[in-house]
Simulated scan of single mutants.
Amino acid sequence: MAKAKKDKPVILITNDDGITAPGIKALYEAVKDLGQIVIVAPDKPQSGMGHAITIGHPLRLQKTDLFPEIESYSCSGTPVDCVKLAVDKVLHRKPDLCLSGINHGPNHSINVIYSGTMSAAMEAAIESIPAVGFSLMSYSANADFSAAQHYARLVTEKMLKDKLTKHVLLNVNIPDYPLSEIKGYKICKQAYAKYKESFLERKDPSGKKYYWLTGEFINFDNARDSDVWALANSYVSVVPVEFDLTDYALKKKLEKQWKDKTDRSVKKPIKKIVKKSMRKSE
Rank of each mutant, 00 (worst) to 15 (best):
24 I>W: 11
208 K>T: 01
102 I>S: 06
131 A>N: 03
57 H>A: 02
81 D>W: 04
69 E>W: 01
167 H>T: 12
51 H>G: 12
56 G>R: 07
24 I>Y: 06
156 T>P: 06
66 L>I: 09
204 D>T: 05
15 N>P: 04
176 D>E: 11
36 Q>T: 08
226 S>L: 04
92 H>W: 01
164 L>Y: 14
158 K>I: 12
137 M>S: 11
132 V>D: 00
185 Y>W: 13
26 A>P: 09
249 A>L: 13
35 G>N: 09
114 Y>M: 03
222 N>A: 15
187 I>Y: 10
125 A>M: 02
100 S>L: 05
33 D>W: 02
225 D>F: 03
231 L>W: 05
258 W>H: 09
83 V>I: 14
265 S>V: 00
204 D>V: 04
216 E>F: 05
219 N>H: 02
247 D>I: 03
215 G>K: 10
185 Y>K: 11
51 H>F: 15
70 I>C: 05
53 I>N: 03
234 S>A: 12
164 L>G: 03
265 S>W: 09
102 I>L: 11
137 M>W: 04
163 K>L: 00
231 L>A: 03
11 I>N: 04
128 S>M: 14
49 M>P: 00
177 Y>C: 04
100 S>I: 06
240 P>V: 04
81 D>M: 02
111 N>W: 09
271 K>W: 10
167 H>F: 09
160 L>Y: 09
21 A>L: 13
116 G>A: 07
75 C>Q: 02
66 L>A: 04
196 K>T: 07
235 Y>W: 14
23 G>A: 09
204 D>W: 07
224 R>D: 10
217 F>G: 08
41 A>E: 06
175 P>C: 09
270 I>A: 14
167 H>M: 01
196 K>F: 09
193 A>V: 06
184 G>E: 08
101 G>Y: 07
34 L>T: 01
47 S>G: 14
39 I>S: 05
20 T>S: 15
238 V>R: 05
179 L>D: 01
140 S>K: 13
187 I>C: 01
130 P>Q: 05
237 S>A: 13
271 K>Y: 13
11 I>W: 03
228 V>H: 08
60 R>P: 00
45 P>C: 07
143 A>Q: 10
170 L>E: 01
158 K>R: 14
60 R>T: 15
213 L>T: 13
156 T>M: 08
22 P>I: 09
68 P>S: 05
78 T>N: 03
118 M>Q: 14
